[in-house]
């Protein structure tokens, strides 16, 4: 199984990566670019899983080289599962990217990272309800302290593709 870590720049993807993979890591340039990415391995219930730390991107319409690479990496691994890391204190724009990835048919798990920061800013998110609406696992995490990471990994296997029309219906239609 292959798992991609995707999200905006500076939301903690690499912290996740380091927590999940440990030491066995290779860093390389994406062919033809100077944009580097890291990949490593982890074990989930005995199965070897390849984890890729994709460069940060704001959307799937690339605006610079790093975003080009991020989008290309997503598109060339059609069978990948995607952990979308969102800064919980900036949830709306994070969800925009998550929805773009869901729309392309990838099984997605959402990590609402920096949960502690959002909490400190008095931002409260009903993760359960969000999960109900989106139909994909939504897990509050604080990657720096490791909170929520176990749950995130355990929910990977329940990630499955979701139809955007279903999400719209669950959200009560378009406004």
């Amino acid at each position: 199984m292959k798992v991609l870590l995707m999200g905006h720049p500076n939301v903690g993807k690499s912290v996740f990566f380091n927590r999940l993979t440990g030491a066995n890591v290779t860093e390389s340039n994406y062919p033809g670019t100077t944009v580097d990415y890291t990949k490593g391995w982890m074990k989930i219930e005995g199965e070897d899983v390849e984890l890729v730390d994709v460069p940060g991107t704001f959307s799937l319409d690339p605006k610079d080289k790093a975003e080009d690479v991020a989008v290309a990496m997503l598109h060339e691994t059609k069978d990948a599962k995607v952990i979308t890391v969102i800064d919980a204190s900036k949830i709306e724009r994070g969800l925009y990217l998550a929805l773009e990835i869901i729309e392309e048919g990838y099984p997605v798990v959402i990590a609402l990272n920096m949960w502690d920061v959002a909490w400190d800013k008095n931002i409260r998110i009903d993760a359960r309800n969000l999960e109900k609406i989106l139909g994909v696992p939504v897990v509050p995490t604080t990657a720096i302290s490791g909170e929520g990471i176990k749950e995130l990994v355990s929910r990977l296997k329940s990630a499955k593709p979701v139809e955007v029309d279903d999400i719209i219906a669950n959200a009560g239609g378009l406004t």
Binding site: F58, S59, D61, K63, K90, E92, R93, Y96, L97
Partner: peptide, 8 residues
Amino acid sequence: QKRVAGMG
């Protein structure tokens, strides 16, 4: 519109 949507 699409370009700035990702920025919120």
